[in-house]
């Protein structure tokens, strides 16, 4: 059972600060991490490998620094790691990113399972996985909270707002992992050292892939950022005045419903 896991290195948004004057992110000193849902995706692939054999390949598109995320994935147990890095990739939106990943997955060749995290904490789009599946013309199951391989099929419990669905998919299939899927392992110190010392990371550029250049990068992306800004939040406390508890409660509910909160 061979799996490919698409991961992303993201700034830890819990620690992101904004320069209020320029409206830009202060990235200095903000640690980069493997996107949390992607760790569940890695763990999902590793569990299947342990049970049924096969390999796990991790792949990411990003700058040179993103190698750290790949090393961490190898320390967790991934066999092979590929970095997709090229100036031409910069500024890609989800369409362009999925285009590049699809080209890389075409090059890797036959695979049984493709795992992605549901969404990344920097952009929260949840779009790259399904777009990738579409470009590869393979089926998808998103929001996977349980994955069981049964012979030539995968049985996936898919989270839904009003109850879960159990889906059965042929392979290859693209799955997006959510937090409920598993508890990602922490790598042993020994495997961390090994991942840094012994294991190579392959780096693929535009030249290694068959990609239509009009579909990628800033220029090829169908969506563009028009502007970005810091949400203004002027906090003005209002102490609600009223003669009785009933009156105060009613006035509070009026305030909340006028803000469409309740």
């Amino acid at each position: 059972m061979n799996s490919i896991v698409c991961i992303k290195q993201v700034p830890n948004t819990n620690e992101v600060r904004i320069n209020q004057e320029t409206g830009t992110l202060i990235r200095d000193g903000v640690p980069s991490i493997i996107n949390p849902d992607d760790r569940n995706a890695i763990e999902g692939a590793l569990k299947i490998k342990e049970e049924l054999g096969g390999t796990v390949t991790v792949i990411t598109m990003g700058p040179e620094q993103a190698k750290a995320a790949l090393r961490e994935a190898m320390a967790m147990g991934a066999d092979r790691a590929i970095l997709l890095s090229d100036r031409a990739f910069a500024g890609s939106d989800t369409w362009a990113t999925a285009t590049i990943l699809a080209a890389a997955l075409d090059k890797i060749g036959e695979t049984d399972l493709i795992f992605c995290g549901r969404q990344a904490i920097d952009g929260d789009t949840a779009q790259v996985g399904p777009e990738l599946a579409e470009f590869l013309d393979i089926p998808q199951v998103t929001y996977a909270k349980e994955v069981v391989v049964e012979k030539d099929k995968v049985r996936v419990t898919r989270y839904g707002e009003s109850g879960d669905y159990i889906m059965e998919a042929p392979m290859p299939v693209m799955l997006t992992a959510i937090r409920e899927l598993n508890e990602p392992r922490l790598p042993h110190v020994r495997s961390i050292i090994e991942a840094w010392e012994k294991k190579d990371i392959e780096v693929w550029t535009m030249e290694d892939l068959t990609i239509d250049p009009t579909q990628i990068g800033l220029k090829g992306s169908p969506t563009n950022v028009f502007r970005s800004f810091v949400p203004v939040r002027e906090k003005q406390s209002e102490i609600i005045q009223g003669n009785t508890p009933r009156e105060k409660a009613a006035l509070l509910l009026d305030r909340l419903s006028s803000q469409k909160l309740v």
Binding site: D93, T94, T125, A126, Q127, P130, E131, T142, T223
Partner: peptide, 23 residues
Amino acid sequence: ATSYGRDIAPRLAGRLGTGLTAD
């Protein structure tokens, strides 16, 4: 932007050949 909308929308955008903005 429910779990179903976010499942089909990107795949649909991919098939139509257009951009999509999430959430």
